[in-house]
Computed example of a mutant assay.
Amino acid sequence: MEQHTGLRARKKNATWGLLKSTALTMFEERGYENVSVAEIAAAAEVSKATVFNYFPSKEDLVIGGMRHHTGDAARVVRERRRGQTPHAAMREHCLHLVEHHAPQVGLSDEPMFLQVQRLLIATPVLMVSAMAYRRRSAVELGEVLMAEGHSRLTSSLVASQLLHTQHILAELNIRRMLHGDPVEEIRAQAVGAAQHAFGLLETGIGDLMRRDTEPPAAPDAAFNRDDCPTGYEPCESEARDAAERVLADTGDELLQALTDPRR
């Protein structure tokens, strides 16, 4: 029975991997919105129903894995040890993920992971869905903090700051991964980045980046050097009205001569 179950699990994993790799390759080649689920099924030589058995929606073929991690931050904070703050627990968790090259912090060099990241950057609709997952993570974390007796406002602010900090750190790592930087080099610098980022949450922004000099005098980017709106072009009616006003000026003898109907 154990051998049969193991074989069935391996077959399911193989089918899952085939469908995902097929979809990612087609999305990269033709664009996410230009590939249908039916075409993916045909390329993988399975039925459309089989695809939906493994992936409830088309976007799940790319970012479905994110749904399994929306509760991670809430769990880490809920299970933190006595005397530990939420940001300290999240920093410890983030450093643990960095140490193990986890994809959640952008430190995986697996081809499939990098494919997903390239597609996210190139596909706004997928980026919006990914943001929704991150928003769900913040909501779940906020609920944990409210359950501990903190106000909704404070809980929401803390949850959002913690999750967005982790997201920015992961995004920096991902961009370097896609650039082709060595993963060990990225990991070493990611440790310092995480310490710095969560340190700001711990100590607060305070006087950081206070301006000590007067701001530089710079022209308004919305206007050119002639004080005309940048990129402004008069419409046809405005141009016609201006021409009529000029032609109606009887004080310009040259214009009168040029527009004389008898010429």
Rank of each mutant, 00 (worst) to 15 (best):
G6A: 15
L7N: 13
R10H: 07
K12G: 14
W16R: 14
L19N: 02
L19K: 06
T25P: 00
F27D: 01
R30W: 04
V35W: 00
S36A: 03
S36I: 02
V37D: 05
A43C: 06
V46H: 01
N53T: 00
E59T: 08
G64R: 00
G65H: 02
M66A: 05
T70G: 06
T70D: 11
T70H: 00
V77C: 00
A88M: 09
A88C: 03
H93D: 04
H93I: 01
L95F: 01
V98T: 07
A102H: 14
P103L: 04
P103E: 03
G106D: 05
S108A: 04
E110R: 12
F113M: 06
V116K: 09
R118V: 04
A122Y: 04
S129T: 14
S129E: 14
Y133W: 05
S137W: 05
G142I: 04
V144E: 11
L145W: 05
M146N: 03
A147R: 08
S151K: 07
S155Y: 04
L157G: 05
V158K: 06
Q166Y: 01
L169H: 02
N173G: 05
I174K: 06
R175D: 01
R176A: 02
M177K: 01
A190F: 00
G192I: 05
A194Q: 06
A194E: 06
A197E: 02
G199F: 03
E202V: 02
G204I: 01
G206L: 05
L208T: 14
R210C: 06
R211D: 13
A217E: 15
A217I: 13
A218I: 14
A221K: 13
C228W: 15
C235E: 15
S237P: 02
S237R: 15
E238F: 10
R240I: 14
A243Y: 10
E244F: 12
D249E: 08
L255Y: 03
